[in-house]
Design a protein around this nucleic acid. Structure first.
Lengths: 127, 127
DNA sequence: CGTAGTCGATTACGTGTGTAAACGATGGAG
DNA sequence: CTCCATCGTTTACACACGTAATCGACTACG
């Protein structure tokens, strides 16, 4: 019984694209997912089906039968995914500290005016 | 002629560990790199040699003969690597905007007091 | 001078990933 | 009822990655 809390299986980049589609709107059929992601990436429906299967195996998406076909929905929250992914990067590249990442983005001119304003507001809220 | 500016070959996670050793101090021999990275990861010297070869193939590190053995040094700057990697993440997860990343880190309590202070200082400098 | 150790290069092998075709069931059109 | 369009599932395959043993060359010790 219940070891479902899940082994946090890694989601690959291609799989992530599928997750994004599902996070945007769900449940979706495989065909609908393809409509969202196939064109920009030049994928075929078959590819999307494979990715969906793998995501189901990884317990990252759930299936719900709808007549003959299945509907797919995310089983993990976007926040969780985004959280572990950014944490991984910050750990790997910046020794777990967020400030160096921020400094790097600043130096690389990756911060827009809007970004700066927004971050300023967030900072104020944090204090 | 000259397509050396390099195909921006991706550096894998294991390879990145080797790069870190070289960024910290270089040039190093394969054995010296192993001294830095083998123990924490349970790698053998053979593994490090393979990773070094692959990095040489990817033009990410340079070799310089030193008598019988080779000395390895990074051919790409840490800043460049860190830059493209963080950019990739921000693009993939936050639509290219840094502010949402920051917001996420804030919400996840991934920001220490020091981080906040440091970022505040950076912000002030940016304005 | 031969032999043991060491170095980089070559080869190996299992797994994950990207990408997809083939197959089998099934539901809807005629 | 029969056949075709669709599903999801199974199988495929090349390449990247993690991890390593082996091989051929060379050096240094004896």
């Amino acid at each position: 019984m219940a070891e479902e809390p899940d082994t946090p299986e890694r989601i690959s980049e291609a799989e992530h694209a599928v997750m994004e589609a599902l996070w945007q709107r769900s449940p979706l059929t495989a065909t609908e997912v393809c409509e969202q992601v196939c064109a920009p990436r030049g994928w075929s429906l078959a590819t999307v089906k494979t990715l969906l299967s793998r995501l189901v195996a990884k317990q990252a998406v759930a299936t719900e039968p709808d007549g003959k076909r299945f509907l797919y929905s995310p089983r993990i929250a976007r926040e969780a995914y985004v959280g572990t992914e950014s944490r991984r990067l910050v750990d790997r590249l910046f020794g777990g500290r967020a400030a160096p990442l921020f400094a790097h983005l600043a130096e690389a001119d990756a911060l827009s005016e809007d970004d700066i304003a927004e971050i300023e507001a967030l900072l104020k809220a944090l204090k």
